[in-house]
């Protein structure tokens, strides 16, 4: 474990807690894309298949349980909770996430470390995580006023993967044969997708104006 990875995991944890806080306390999911939340639940479900078979560390297992539990409970809140679901913007959140899942699955069948179910699922989860934010970014473009919690949620979600890139660089230089192209390329693509959001988020913070993305 290195400081970059710990920072990444804590930032990722904070993004999930910010979202749960928003949904649980003010009972609103305005501006949040259910599609992205469902994609994240699928990412964790396919990545943590080995949660009960390969024990890495207590930390690893606890964090996996937190990410699985929070992502599925957020989807449940947005689908089932009578108050929260009322604030869900169904008309605007129309990104057909099936068109993200299928290419990632096909790519995982071709590009994987080993053609086994677990390895293909693991590669699929990495490709899917890279693009899972797209429905959320599209929704942000459409909904003019982005409230602070939603902006912070997306920012933290992007920042966590950026920390992971520093973690991979660090591990590449400190651990022999630490080379994982699938993880690196997916993580880089994922972070680049946030680039324009970061640009507008930083500017809105610098000029102390409300965050809004150009149409």
């Amino acid at each position: 474990m290195n400081i970059f990875r710990l920072a990444g995991d804590m930032t990722h944890l904070m993004s999930v807690l910010v979202l749960l806080l928003k949904i649980h306390t003010i009972k609103s999911c305005a501006g949040i894309s259910l599609k992205t939340q469902e994609l994240y639940a699928l990412v964790f479900a396919t990545r943590y298949l080995d949660i009960f078979t390969d024990f890495i560390s207590v930390y690893n297992t606890i964090m996996k349980l937190i990410f699985l539990g929070s992502s599925f409970s957020i989807v449940w809140y947005m689908r089932r909770h009578k108050l929260v679901r009322r604030s869900y913007d169904k008309e605007q959140d129309t990104f057909r996430h099936f068109f993200l899942v299928l290419p990632c699955l096909l790519l995982a069948l071709v590009m994987n470390e080993k053609f086994t179910f677990k390895e293909v699922m693991w590669a699929f989860s990495l490709y899917l995580e890279a693009v899972a934010i797209l429905p959320q970014l599209v929704l942000l473009q459409r909904t003019k006023n982005i409230d602070n919690l939603t902006g912070q949620y997306v920012f933290l979600l992007g920042a966590y993967r950026a920390f992971y890139i520093f973690n991979w660089i660090y591990r590449y230089f400190t651990e022999p044969h630490y080379v994982h192209w699938i993880t690196w390329i997916s993580g880089l693509v994922q972070t680049l997708l946030y680039a324009d959001f970061f640009y507008y988020y930083f500017n809105s913070w610098k000029n102390n104006v409300k965050l809004h993305l150009p149409a």
Partner: peptide, 10 residues
Amino acid sequence: EECIHVKDEL
């Protein structure tokens, strides 16, 4: 032999 790397990251 082809080493499958341990998935120790989240």
